[in-house]
Design a protein around this nucleic acid. Sequence first.
DNA 1: TCCTCAGATCTGGTCATACCAAATTTGCGC
DNA 2: GCGCAAATTTGGTATGACCAGATCTGAGGA
Lengths: 230, 230
Amino acid sequence: MKENSLLSDLAAHLFSNSSGNGRTPSERELAEHFGVSRGQVREALAILEAMRIVERRAKSGIYLTTTEASVEAMALFARAGVPLDPILIYETVELRKIHEIKAAELACDRATEENYQHLRDILGASEAKLAAGEGLAREDRDFHLEIVRATKNSVFHRVCSVYYVMGEHRLPIYFADPARSRRSHEEHIRIYEALLARDGNLAQALMSAHLQGAESYWKGLIGGPATAAE
Amino acid sequence: MKENSLLSDLAAHLFSNSSGNGRTPSERELAEHFGVSRGQVREALAILEAMRIVERRAKSGIYLTTTEASVEAMALFARAGVPLDPILIYETVELRKIHEIKAAELACDRATEENYQHLRDILGASEAKLAAGEGLAREDRDFHLEIVRATKNSVFHRVCSVYYVMGEHRLPIYFADPARSRRSHEEHIRIYEALLARDGNLAQALMSAHLQGAESYWKGLIGGPATAAE
DNA sequence: TCCTCAGATCTGGTCATACCAAATTTGCGC
DNA sequence: GCGCAAATTTGGTATGACCAGATCTGAGGA
């Protein structure tokens, strides 16, 4: 990964080192802290400002945004390992349900052989991972995104691909349980078969049930005291 | 507006002045062209790169991204006045339908008095605009976004608020017709009433019909190449 | 003790230079 | 034409400086 580590490190640092009014250290302090030039810090801050994570007030300082940050911002935090508000995870799952049930329906009408081939490839990779006793985080994401891609609506895909990465640091936990991984994989297979049969109603129903499992899981984690082993 | 004009100007410029392989002018050339320092250009480029609009290759150059740009990028272009591929507009409308029909349903369950008040305020503002013979672009967006907000799913709202701005430069055309504005406004009123009555099915149906009108309109303008595949 | 206000300080915004090393282009010699 | 080395270009990065408004500090007055 050649990811911009300064960006995520900086984001994490700003949240840990901001005063009560949301004011963060100055550009000069940040530059010194990270051992880079002010220019580098300003470049990163420009991105963070575009993501509405911070607000730069001329001659005053840098402040954490009080209003809603962008979805990109949430994804950045997820990558940076910043703990995400559980509420946001739940909301994300809810949004996924809205997106993917519809995507499954549309994909039944519009999926091409290329999409089917990709899905088969992903299922094959999943099988291999399962056999090796590994988690399916990456394959899960790929499978679901490929269905969105099969809707042939690129805006739909752009929107989904942004917030799907949010789960990248959560899914490993979810798929740590081999039984859950296996069940999820089998549900994927059935969804694939429904897509192949172009049975819109069935695909929707299967997708709904599939995501319901994830929703209950996260709801359980968020809701009562954490009883699940982690 | 205190918007970062360099950002959008730069984005537009890059698209007009890139060679066949997608290579854009160098940072130094861009700095000179816009009469700013290289640092300013680099800050803007950092944002454009984060939006996946360009790719900066060390010691080589800046290249327009061949892969899918982010939704944020589309919104930026819309603001910058860069003509958007009609296909993207149609795809956006389709995604809006997916989002808003569901939002209407959820809002029926979760809307609070605050949401209703906002909706009333927006409808009032719409009435005033209509009486003054003005378009409803802003009010239309506010109305629809408020319904999304009423779902109390902040991720949902974040996602929608990004791509809604895409329409800001299109809606004025749509609402140039007084009859269409009036009809749209009246449909908003009925949707509001359904939300107030917490009638989920009715709200969904009204929203679906409301957006169907917009969809047909844009489809008509585009010429319907999207559905020609079937 | 508390308030006021001018002066010192800090801060983001912007620009000009400079150096590096790799990628590109140029142009010489064949 | 062609190959290859030298000259040039390019992004990446750092340093230093100046501006002007925001912010903080402390002395002096009520």
